[in-house]
Amino acid sequence: MTEIEKIIVKFLNKEANHSELEKLEELLQNDEGMHVFNSFVKTQYLSTLSMTEYDLNNAKESIKSRLRKSERAKKINIYKRMSVAASVVLVLGMASYLLYNTSMVNRPVGKQQPHLIVTGTDKAILTLENGDEVALVKGKKFQTGKVSSNGEELVYVDKERSDAIVGEQSYNFLTIPRGGQFFVKLSDGTEVWLNSETKLKYPVVFKDGMTREVELLYGEAYFKVSPSTAHKGAAFHVLTKSQEIDVLGTEFNVRAYNNDQIMATTLVEGKIRIKRGKIIETLKPNQQAKINHNSDNIDIGEIDVSQEISWINGLFFFNEKPLEEIMIVLSRWYDTEVVFENAKQKYFVFTGILERTESVDDILELIGATSEGQLQFEINDKTIIIK
């Protein structure tokens, strides 16, 4: 990597010092230099996200703006490195980045009350077999003879160490509210990550020799299933309101929210069979099955799984998503309502990768920075108003 390429990388990561910014500004004074800058960024970064060409003039203005400042503004790092399989992808929401620290970012977001809309966190409601409910939150421990929690995860006793099941199988429910997420390790060793506004039903202990079966009543869950070879060949099934998933030791994501028209099942590793009525389809890794509730078909397509499972890595991954879909995702995580005063704003398209730990104000500011003045956000109590 040449010296100028190193400086470009440092600029994109907001790490370039004053002298390095001067060199970069000098580079952009002629067409050849602009071509070098443009080609390097597009080749090394934008191609990974299939993003469109950014506005180079904004990059120039950003450099000049930073050179004029005697003190660096507080950094807001909206990117992180995310490992997907064996590769590491440098995540860049380029449009947001190149506009940040320009006059557009200084545009007010509107009335802000960040103390009312808070970032999501680990929390859940555990419903025991006798109907009792336990609130699971950070800093609060819970333990019985079969399950324990430190407030951030729920772990069931390995079935080999539990008492033999007598009579009917007993079930627990784990409910994740809006603004929450949680992790549970079932008695067979299967690991499940649950997203906001999700409910899972599962046995306290799986019976030997019987199919291991859980039910995703609604919401989104990522499963890392303990293989059948470790359980005397017992298969693992995931039921939803519209399909049955037959699992053979694998990792996959299921998104089945009540108010979503389409349910999506994405395979990361292994093999699964999806059944909807008499229709049966088998998924390969990096494929997604979509089921429209108004149709009996199962549509299979290739997909970048890193986008679909970004939430378990603490990220929002939006690739040319309309604002209406984006706000549904954000409303679940930040437990807020959304109002579009101008229906046309629902179709504004945004691409970027943002951290779920960011405040809702920062997320809205970064989305707004790419809209060239098209979007105006206002926060009123726990409602986001888009004008």
Rank of each mutant, 00 (worst) to 15 (best):
Gln374Arg: 13
Met210Cys: 07
Ser50Gln: 06
Phe348Ser: 05
Met82Asn: 04
Phe316Asn: 04
Ser310Trp: 01
Met104Tyr: 15
Glu355His: 09
Ser62Lys: 03
Asn13Ile: 02
Glu341Lys: 13
Glu61Phe: 08
Glu213Val: 07
Gly151Ala: 13
Asp208Thr: 13
Val204Trp: 04
Gln345His: 12
Glu152Ala: 10
Asn17Trp: 08
Pro227Gly: 06
Met82Gly: 01
Phe377Ser: 00
Phe182Arg: 06
Leu154Pro: 07
Thr121Ile: 07
Val147Thr: 11
Pro227Glu: 08
Trp193His: 05
Lys74Pro: 08
Val157Met: 15
Thr175Asp: 11
Ser162Glu: 08
Lys241Phe: 00
Glu244His: 12
Ile280Gly: 09
Leu217Ile: 12
Ile280Cys: 12
Gly151Trp: 09
Asp132Tyr: 10
Lys387Met: 08
Glu22Ala: 09
Thr229Ala: 14
Ser331Leu: 00
Leu90Cys: 06
Asp362His: 12
Ser103Arg: 13
Arg178Trp: 02
Thr370Asn: 05
Asn17His: 15
Phe317Ile: 02
Arg72Ser: 13
Met94Thr: 00
Gln169Asn: 11
Phe316Leu: 06
Ile176Leu: 04
Asn195Gln: 06
Tyr100Gly: 02
Ile300Met: 04
Leu174Asp: 07
Leu375Cys: 11
Ser162Leu: 07
Ala289Glu: 07
Ser50Asn: 15
Val155Lys: 14
Leu56Gly: 04
Val157Leu: 15
Arg66Tyr: 02
Val225Asn: 02
Leu49Val: 12
Glu191Val: 04
Thr127Asn: 10
Leu98Gln: 09
Lys140Asp: 06
Glu5Phe: 04
Ser242Ala: 13
Thr266Glu: 07
Thr351Trp: 01
Lys75Glu: 03
Val360Pro: 00
Phe37Asp: 03
Trp333Arg: 00
Lys123Cys: 09
Asn380Ile: 14
Leu283Asp: 14
Gly277Val: 10
Phe183Leu: 10
Leu12Gly: 09
Pro114Gln: 06
Val192Met: 08
Ala16Val: 00
Glu302Phe: 11
Lys321Gly: 01
Ile7Trp: 00
Ala221Ile: 00
Leu90Ile: 07
Ala73Asn: 12
Leu323Arg: 03
Glu168Arg: 07
Ala164Asn: 04
Ser196Tyr: 01
Gln243Asn: 09
Lys60Pro: 01
Ser65Tyr: 10
Arg332Ile: 04
Val238Ser: 05
